[in-house]
């Protein structure tokens, strides 16, 4: 049998396969260059960028929970200027699309960061983080209020000619409402879900374990929630979707594709195994071979309900 066609196109970004790395779990790519072939996956999404460098939260910043982990990194990042001068040159040498995740503390900052990236050939697209739950005056407001989200998306769209992916928060009552709002504002694609807000407590010390008290839950524990949200949004919004949430292996990834995702992001799994994204891409292809499925595109949204 011929090799199955694993390629997908997402908002104009051509990818060799649907496997992307999730922002915040893959550094700036170089951290993983020793462990995997960066040209074996569909796209790389870099750590969330802000206009100025950001220190992030005090420690402890992470804690393991059953089947998952909570993190409250607080968007520590090098800032857009250092990203362009220090991180992007390495990434530009890799023949894999680079999508830059960005966020702003204010509406204006979203626009400013997006416009600084607009002219760079090494950037294939933008993923807008309107949903990071760990910054007090930041993302969560935009991520839970449909009108505020629309404002951000409109401004970012005006500031860049690159494809704009909006990353949605699951910490809302109606994710479809948020998705529609972003679609109406001109988003080219949606990625979901970001982490679920949670907390962990040290009983004996009677204190929260994270210095930030709450954090974002990721890992296999959130996969059922993520699948449900991807499925709901896919049925109601005509935009390509990137499925994220607890993907540990190829079967997990393919479930998201069936639910309606065009592509997937591998996050926490890269912490356990730095070559997880590559392995997942390879094993997805093997699944198609084993089941005589000619193309991954034919599986998108093919869930039988």
């Amino acid at each position: 049998m011929q090799k199955p066609d694993m390629s997908v196109e997402l908002a104009g970004i051509k990818m060799r396969n649907p496997v992307m790395t999730a922002s915040g779990t893959f550094g700036y790519g170089a951290e993983f260059g020793d462990y995997m072939n960066l040209e074996s996956i569909g796209a790389m999404i870099t750590k969330g960028l802000s206009l100025k460098p950001k220190a992030g939260n005090p420690t402890p910043r992470i804690v393991e929970t059953p089947g998952g982990m909570l993190n409250a990194i607080g968007l520590q990042n090098v800032g857009v200027d250092a990203f362009i001068s220090q991180k992007l040159p390495y990434l530009s040498r890799v023949a894999t699309p680079v999508i830059v995740n960005l966020y702003g503390n204010t509406l204006e900052e979203y626009g400013e960061v997006a416009s600084r990236l607009d002219s760079l050939d090494g950037v294939a697209g933008i993923e807008v983080n309107i949903s990071c739950p760990n910054v007090k005056q930041g993302g969560i407001v935009f991520g839970t209020d449909p009108l505020a989200a629309q404002e951000v998306v409109r401004l970012v769209k005006r500031s860049t000619s690159k494809p704009v992916i909006v990353k949605l928060s699951p910490n809302v009552t109606d994710v479809v409402l948020m998705a529609k709002a972003c679609a109406d504002a001109g988003a080219d694609a949606l990625s979901l879900i970001n982490t679920l807000t949670g907390m962990a407590i040290d009983l004996d010390r009677r204190r929260p374990i994270l210095a930030n008290v709450t954090g974002g839950l990721s890992g296999p524990a959130i996969k059922p929630v993520a699948l449900r949200m991807v499925w709901q949004v896919a049925r109601n919004v005509r935009l390509p979707i990137i499925g994220i949430g607890g993907i540990m292996n190829a079967r997990d990834a393919l479930e998201f594709i069936l639910a309606g995702a065009t592509a997937v992001q591998v996050g926490t799994a890269s912490f356990l195994d730095p070559s997880a994204a590559q392995t997942i891409a390879r094993e997805m292809e093997q699944y198609l071979v084993d089941n005589r499925i000619p193309s991954i595109a034919s599986m998108i949204g093919a869930l039988e309900v």
Binding site: T25, F32, I62, M69, F271
Partner: peptide
Amino acid sequence: MACGVGACLG
């Protein structure tokens, strides 16, 4: 730490 390779920033 979650990853050991400089990515999680934990």
